[in-house]
Write a protein that binds this DNA or RNA. Structure first.
Lengths: 162, 162
DNA sequence: TCAAATAGGGATATTGTATATCCGTAATTA
DNA sequence: TAATTACGGATATACAATATCCCTATTTGA
């Protein structure tokens, strides 16, 4: 059970967009170059973010993406679910219903006890991702990324941002 | 990102094995019938449990599986990791290293900040699964499963347990 | 006004993993 | 001795992830 690589891409792209000045846009092309990713395929991930309403887009030259809300309002969970989908990692096939000892047509009282435990773990996972915003991430990156690279990247982005 | 159906199968099988009397064994065939699953494929899941040391096996007629430890020592995480593998759900491809603003051969100080957040969520998921044992599960099932079905299944299992 | 650049969506190919089955082997029991 | 079992290897199938290509509508800048 491994997350799509698009999740990683989307997270890093949102990190960049989080430090983009208000009102500026950054294109798929620039984001792909910056991260060394296939432009066409990265585009699909960004479209997922757009469909989820997490980013705003404009067309034409100097078009691209910007966050639709402030970095401190955007959580890791938002991005992960936009790309990966909001479904549960554990899908209950209700195999207890195949028990030959059951009378036919027996109606279950509620969700399977096994599934409930697995779903609680899913919720713990989601909860952890919901607690971290992109404002938190940017703060961490500012503190630990080499200052020369940090500002160099910032300049690189600004030069390409419409 | 969805767990293998084998995870569900293994969990339900361990639930049955947890209420099996000391020293008795239950075969793949019986476990497959009880849950309405393909015997050959379920066998692979049970083999994973065996390789992980969670169950003990015997060969020959009246052979099969029993738990290798007491139900209160066996956690959901044990079973999930045996079948699904213990790897992380988020694989860091370290795409920050593709940043064209970096000097070539630049050495990273540590794991990516994005990956660390994702890994913490993974750990929250694991931690939730580690907290629930099969003794807990059996207790829940005893309390909520229809008593007639519960005892009927118990008899069904005993008749087939070697 | 027009050419270039952009997001977006559809179609398609490729790869990889999950699912599923089959068969042979060694061990064990009745 | 014959039947039953776990186990491992080989193989086939279905489906999702990955990746690319092309067309369209829109917008910008020259």
């Amino acid at each position: 059970m491994i997350l799509k690589s698009q999740v990683e891409w989307a997270l890093h792209c949102c990190a960049i967009l989080s430090s983009l000045p208000e009102g500026r846009y950054l294109s798929t092309k620039a984001l792909a170059e910056l991260h060394g990713l296939p432009k066409e395929y990265l585009s699909k991930a960004l479209q997922s973010l757009s469909q989820a309403g997490l980013v705003h887009t404009t067309l034409g030259p100097s078009g691209g993406y910007r966050l639709a809300k402030a970095p401190n309002e955007l959580t890791f969970l938002d991005v992960v679910e936009a790309v990966e989908g909001g479904g549960r990692t554990f899908v209950c096939q209700n195999i207890r219903a195949n028990n030959p000892c059951r009378p036919k047509g027996f109606c279950e009282s509620g969700p399977c006890a096994v599934a409930r435990v697995m779903w609680e773990a899913d919720e713990a996972w989601r909860s952890a991702l919901r607690k971290v915003t992109f404002a938190d991430l940017v703060q961490t990156l500012e503190a630990e990324v080499d200052p020369a690279i940090w500002s160099g990247t910032f300049q690189w982005v600004l030069k390409r941002a419409g």
